[in-house]
Simulated scan of single mutants.
Amino acid sequence: MNASQPPAEQPAQPSSPEEPVPAASAGGGTDAIDAFFGRKTAPESAAQRCGLIAIVGRPNVGKSTLLNALVGQKVSITSRKAQTTRHRITGIRTHEDTQYVFVDTPGFQTRHGNALNRNLNRTVLASVGDVDVILFVVEAGRFGLDDAKVLSVLQGPGMEGKPVLLVANKLDQVHRRGDVAPWLKSMQERHPFAEFVPMTAKRPDDIQRLLQVVRPYLPEQGWFYDAEALTDRSDRFLASEIVREKLFRLTGDELPYTSTVVIDKFEEEGRLRKIAATIIVERDGHKGMVIGDGGERLKRIGTEARQELEKLMDCKVFLELWVKVRSGWADDEQRLRSYGYE
């Protein structure tokens, strides 16, 4: 089957009512699935390992949730709104003799051609070009046109020989074991994936199994970061991301995704952080959505962001929020750079 011309996205159909799916496991999932495909994991070695792992997939497929679970702490924001991640976010997990350096990429954009989306797609392409292994995240039992477009990037020039692991996330939403193996067989026909990993990112056992599957694909070399490191991003960057997450979570579908957050001030005074941030929107009507009646929504955004930042940074946080209108910013290359988009 040609991956560039897939059928329309359809949920997997139950095969029979008496075949419940057992708890997900990585590296091929159930014993039946392992037996069907065979294990292809590279031989183990006791040498120290370290490498870069890109997490790619269409928007809103669960990449940021997976990254946070792999790292063991929140380093990338999540929301139901597609296109939440906009930067190459690095999360680090050091376990025993192996350091995993994960790169969470924006969802590959196929529907809008503005400067922001072109920037996001450049970030995806740059991320996959210099990593050791790629985790291609899809929803278990589903494969639509947007998934196929991301896969076509992984099959493009310069990708020859780079191991791609198919991470079939949200396995808990597939209700019959019989649905999974035929779907995985169809995916095997689309691309010679190095591994098939049906799993649920919220299950700790699945995360541990995925780490075990990834380890043999990392080079034998020294670690890039200290063993205690969790991300290469600064507290200032994390502050802007947490505010943006609360913005999207509390405005839902009312607010277009072309809104962003700029940190105007980030000061450290002992165990106190003084932060001033501006929420950038494109229209006056969007400004009203963010502020809410009597300023209540903006106040809630600030309160929830402050509480999470205090937990992440283990200190007191004083947070000021402002809202400004900047029409057309998402299609202005100069403004994108000034707002921190690479």
Rank of each mutant, 00 (worst) to 15 (best):
V290W: 04
N117E: 15
L151T: 01
G178R: 02
E254V: 00
L238R: 14
T84C: 02
R233P: 03
P106Y: 10
A42D: 11
V197W: 00
R271A: 13
N117G: 10
K162C: 05
A46H: 12
A277M: 12
A201N: 07
Y217E: 01
F102I: 06
V138W: 03
N121S: 03
I53T: 00
K324N: 03
P14H: 03
R86D: 10
G222D: 15
M159C: 00
G178K: 00
R233F: 04
T110S: 11
R203I: 09
E139W: 00
P198R: 06
T231N: 02
G302W: 05
L184F: 06
A47K: 14
P163C: 10
H175M: 11
Q221P: 01
R93A: 11
F143V: 12
T260M: 12
A168C: 15
G328W: 01
A8N: 11
D232V: 02
D206F: 02
R337N: 00
R177Q: 14
K185D: 12
F248A: 04
P163Y: 12
H95G: 07
D332V: 05
T251M: 09
I89F: 04
F37N: 04
T260H: 10
T30G: 01
I33L: 15
K81C: 03
P219S: 00
L125R: 15
F37R: 02
P11A: 00
R249W: 04
V153I: 11
